[in-house]
Each structure stands twice: as structure tokens, then as C-alpha cells.
Design a protein around this nucleic acid. Structure first.
Length: 147
DNA sequence: GCCAACGTTGGC
DNA sequence: GCCAACGTTGGC
């Protein structure tokens, strides 16, 4: 399963708002790389929700709840959207600063291609950010507690 | 509020 | 089809 990252300015559309509304269509994307990423998304795949400008942190987990389809707000007819739904907030938001400070995340699109609004996240990056955020993934190997 | 980075547009 | 100009994003 692939993983993703959605960026949003919290004063425009925050994770809290998504949680309250349960689900939303991710319309308004007008970038071809972001479009290609959305076209590759499958139902049930998960992504991070990142707050840009204010907060600058990964704050929650979302799930793809509807596949790519045309965005009717786009007059050119070229761009589309998926639906996402809120899954859960991160116990501890992972700030951009923390991501930049983690060498294993140096290639993450959030750092390397900061302007892309819908990004792919590798499995390794996903696991690292989840761990930093205080989420233990199902099936993930856990370090043994000290005796 | 500034400005660097990047994508898009449009003239040629 | 190239590339300069312009607009937008987003970190600082």
C-alpha cells in the first residue's frame, strides 16, 4: 500500500475541520504532479495531513475514501480530485523542524519538494513519521521493553 | 512581509 | 519548442 501526504493551510482547511466534517473532496488542485499522485491513489490507502504556513507540522492521518475523478470546479476539465476522510490525529504533531532534523527524512518530498501539495510518502518515511508522532503501527516491530 | 523556488503562460 | 515573464506557494 502506498502512502501519501496532503498539505493544507489550517486557516483555510484544518485537520480539525476535516475531523468535524468526517470527509471532504480534495478539489482545487491545479498541479500536474499532484494530479498524477491522486490518480495513483487507491481506496483505503492512508496519508498524512500536513498544516502549512501555520503550525508547519504533520498533524493527522487520513484515508482515501473515493477514487480520482474530475473536479467539476476546474473549468479546463484537466484536473480532478479524490475524497479523503479523517482517521485519527497524531498524538504528537511532527513539525517540519523535526522532519528536517531527521537525516532519514532528508529525501522526503516535504523537504525536497516543499511546494508540491499532494506528495507520495515512502513506507520507510511513513513508519518514521508515525513513530515520531507517537503512533505505533499495527504489525510494526516493537523494541522489547527493558527488563 | 519578503523572497526563493518552482510551475505555468504566452510571445516569438 | 524555447525561454522570459509572471504568478503562486510556503518557509522564514
Amino acid at each position: 500500500m502506498a502512502h501519501w501526504l496532503f498539505k493544507s493551510e489550517p486557516n483555510v482547511f484544518s485537520f480539525e475541520k476535516l475531523t468535524a466534517e468526517k470527509t471532504t473532496d480534495w478539489s482545487g488542485v491545479r498541479n500536474h504532479s499532484a494530479k498524477l499522485n491522486m490518480m495513483a491513489m487507491k481506496l483505503g490507502e492512508r496519508g498524512f495531513f500536513y498544516h502549512s504556513n501555520e503550525g508547519k507540522a504533520v498533524v493527522g492521518i487520513v484515508e482515501i475514501s473515493a477514487l480520482y475523478r474530475l473536479d467539476r470546479s476546474d473549468e479546463s476539465g484537466k484536473f480532478g480530485m479524490v475524497d479523503i476522510k479523517a482517521v485519527e490525529p497524531l498524538p504528537r504533531p511532527v513539525t517540519l523542524e523535526a522532519v528536517k532534523a531527521e537525516p532519514r527524512l532528508a529525501k522526503m518530498a516535504l523537504v525536497a519538494n516543499s511546494r508540491l501539495s499532494v506528495q507520495p510518502v515512502t513506507d520507510e518515511e511513513w513508519a518514521i513519521v508515525c513513530e515520531m508522532g507517537g503512533l505505533v503501527q499495527r504489525g510494526a516491530k516493537r523494541a522489547k521493553a527493558p527488563a
